[in-house]
Design a protein around this nucleic acid. Structure first.
Lengths: 505, 505
DNA sequence: GATTACACGTGAAGC
DNA sequence: TGCTTCACGTGTAAT
């Protein structure tokens, strides 16, 4: 695995047999981390939700400044952990090995091993297949028009990592998971970490939930925190501590490891509940090292380390970590779910669930109708009734239509409106992140691939969707032609040209 | 509304316009109540999750004794509320008016206004249409064999009320929502209410989450509590207070009403967030009335009423209620989701979400396949498949094959073990579906694309992932070279060759 | 200013 | 026994 500190990388562990090893799901989520220019976040669990949401929020936000925000913050944390991804990777084998969008990609268990993320890459969860195109405002708010049915699915994996469905409308506490934020290179990450009222120190590990999809929130908060806290109150300490910590329990990969030094060492070691949760550890370490900057915890007396309050000794600390993992896992799942559901009215949890339910119902109905259709195949195809949907008049047609039109296609992506969008980010070490979106055309994929090849860009991690618009997201491409050292504009121009959109944007 | 206490009846309110009125969901859930032989519970929100889970646990439990446990506990609470359901009912019109199982019934928005529950009515969520019949142990444990796609769906509404996905394997704190328990006529309801460690007094209102699906847990706990606490420590007070309270703010229907008497009166009045939450109120009342039986709250100093700790005054109390509502709502949704998903491996939240995601993916795939099938209607009339039911013998060859094998789905295939998997389906009109999965290699994408191009296959809908293995799913490709009419094996061979895996599978 | 939503850290409970 | 899950009450934040 590339240990390039600047690039964001995520390792995911694929899920085991869900049925039997459902409990192992945690593991799935566990070992992965994001490495960003500014900050390195480890342990997928730590980041997933917040990050993605962060992304979204970022994306939603009009300005692209965010990534510029705190370039200085970068800290190669847990660099030793970089190896882990490999491990995870090696172990990775999703239960649904076929990584098809509908299977693997959406497979929450499937792990993404390497994911370098760039800001604009993550999309709002418009599902690839949706019967109901009207994807919520949320999506619309996004700049890039890519419907990304595909991306989403891919990002399902990704979303595990970067999700925060927090609340579209609502706020989102940043969850303070440093991982999430740091991954995005926000200098204010630290501020996030410690600003979060109650649990200050420990926070980074878990949810960083709320970075909700809403753009403004993120920026607002980021700006706010930057302003308020200035650089970062605890940044150095955190990063450093985390780094050190990571080194300590790196081999462990277990989230429990570093929880509280005093007590954590007990069992977690090889539990393998998480493939590797460096961040976790780091966070936990952070916990210890981190100053109890803000202890205004509602009532919970922050005895995270167990002894502070002298309550049941260290028990809480472990529990704390477990709870964080649990929360993160839930958030991840929730966001993944969200990413699968095309029509998300709001980003809050309840809405996500509700929309998912609704969507499920719709799908079931569609399936039912289709079944009927199929059953009544030759005879009266059109008349094939759709018992389930009273409203649906010409069902088969409708459904088919739906499927054809929207299926796999996000409602909002009006390819027409956005001729082509190409964004290129250069990362250290020749890594390139590319996001491209344009109307789908028959001969777009291959030329684009050729263009990439011609550019000497070796695609290592990518998601390409030809649904309802051509979407190409390359999270990691390396310039194998060392000589030329491309610049983003070049790449962009070439891609636009290859797609026939040159000059369009 | 039939007030027959013994019969189970459900009124559903259809969801409003989800998009716009998403926030109204709360309302939807709000006004409904359960009337049981023993106890009448009002306010759907109060009950949903806990009750159902309770049911499940009950059902799952081998013994039927539970309902016998505390027959005396019954209290016709909030009887006045009975009228409400009608109101809600009148307003009901689901966005998906189709009353099919898959639509209305599953519509989470629909609110149950009146729900008279009987013990055996609730089923584990085996969905009617499921691609994967193996409904989890949970279901199996149930006595009644009805898969009840329908029932479930109905109960989805019902489940709003009675859901607790708590934890199949785990425990479940009873959540103490009086509504839930009381509905079941458990005398120990009270004990539940106050036994719950931290927040003792307030508890009854919210989740009563955990009655998890597990049978033993419920009984165990019930028994435990009965034994420990004897009859009920606060039972009388609770019920009474709740009843009284209900009467007080009955018209209000707002959960906020009775929160803490001191401060709550402010806004909640007509908020209509919940159609009616008598229980809520009652609970809140309970809060006040209830003795602070157990205040071992971790750190939260139980200043629920706001003044106790002297912290931010009464603010917490309101927040507390809101949070309870929120939790309940989430739990409800979650359980509803669960009820829609046929294959639930475990009852814990994460599993529910994961299973839902998985199921969604499956449905999407099914829809896709069905669509293809429909499109190719005339050609293979006999094949009318039931993609959904894998067991269905007649399955269209392709679909069945796909489904059965791994197409897009097989959990077990680990990339490493399976060097390359290519599946090709020919559809009518030259459409081709391809699924390819193999270990990721640097130069795999472009050659594959080239191969596709060389084959004359124009990719129209595809998802390509280079994450953790190369995944290529082409949902629709058309043979632009009309002359040659490829056969699947050819395509497969070419793709394998292009990927360097030829002959490997 | 009020409501809503969220993450948090806890104690409890079931494995 | 430890681990996991859960609900809970909080503080915080956005609306």
């Amino acid at each position: 695995m590339p240990s390039r500190p600047n690039s964001m990388e995520v390792w995911m562990e694929s899920s085991k047999d869900e049925e039997e090893e459902e409990e192992e799901e945690e593991e799935e989520e566990a070992s992965s981390w994001i490495q960003n220019n500014d900050i390195v976040v480890e342990n997928k669990e730590d980041i997933e939700m917040g990050s993605l949401s962060t992304f979204k929020s970022i994306l939603e936000s009009e300005s692209n400044d965010w990534y510029i925000a705190n370039p200085t913050t970068s800290a190669a944390m847990h660099s030793h952990l970089f190896l882990q991804p490999l491990d995870s990777y090696s172990t990775s084998c999703s239960p649904t090995p076929s990584s098809s969008v509908f299977n693997n990609n959406l497979d929450f268990d499937s792990s993404i091993h390497n994911l370098q993320v760039n800001n604009n890459y993550f999309l709002p969860p418009t599902s690839s297949i949706d019967t109901i195109p009207n994807n919520p405002p949320l999506v619309e708010s996004f700049d890039f028009g890519c419907e990304s049915g595909y991306l989403e699915s891919v990002f399902n994996k990704g979303s595990w990592i970067f999700s925060d469905f927090g609340d579209n409308n609502n706020n989102n506490q940043f969850g303070t998971n440093n991982g999430g934020f740091s991954a995005f290179g926000f200098g204010d990450v630290n501020s996030f970490l410690f600003n979060r009222s109650n649990n200050m120190i420990l926070k980074p590990l878990d949810n960083f939930d709320s970075i909700g999809a809403q753009p403004t929130l993120f920026q607002k908060r980021a700006a706010l925190r930057n302003n308020n806290i200035g650089g970062n109150n605890s940044n150095g300490s955190y990063l450093n501590s985390s780094v050190d910590d990571v080194n300590n329990d790196n081999n462990n990969n277990n989230n429990n490891n570093s929880e509280v030094n005093e007590m954590k060492s007990s069992s977690s070691g090889d539990d393998s509940i998480d493939g590797s949760n460096p961040d976790y550890d780091s966070d936990e370490q952070l916990l210890e090292n981190g100053s109890s900057s803000i202890d205004q915890n509602g009532g919970s007396s922050l005895n995270a380390n167990g002894d502070l309050n002298g309550k049941k000794k260290g028990i809480p600390a472990k529990n704390l970590m477990a709870e964080r993992r649990r929360r993160k896992k839930l958030n991840d799942r929730l966001y993944l779910l969200r990413s699968v559901v095309p029509k998300i009215s709001k980003m809050d949890r309840a809405s996500i669930l509700g929309d998912a339910i609704e969507y499920l119902k719709e799908l079931l109905q569609d399936v039912n109708e289709l079944q009927n259709e199929v059953e009544s195949t030759s005879s009266t195809p059109t008349t094939a009734l759709h018992p389930l949907s009273p409203t649906s008049p010409g069902l088969s047609n409708c459904i088919k239509e739906e499927l054809c039109t929207n299926a796999f296609a996000s409602p909002l992506s009006s390819p027409t409106t956005q001729p082509a969008t190409v964004e290129v980010r250069l990362r250290e070490g020749g890594a390139v992140n590319i996001h491209m979106f344009c109307a789908r055309r028959p001969d777009l994929l291959l030329p684009t691939m050729r263009a990439m090849d011609n550019l000497g860009l070796d695609i290592q991690q990518a998601v390409i969707s030809c649904f309802n618009g051509f979407s190409l997201d390359i999270f990691q491409a390396e310039q194998n032609k060392e000589g030329q050292e491309l610049n983003p504009d070049q790449i962009k121009a070439v891609l636009l040209e290859s797609s026939g959109f040159n000059g369009m944007i």
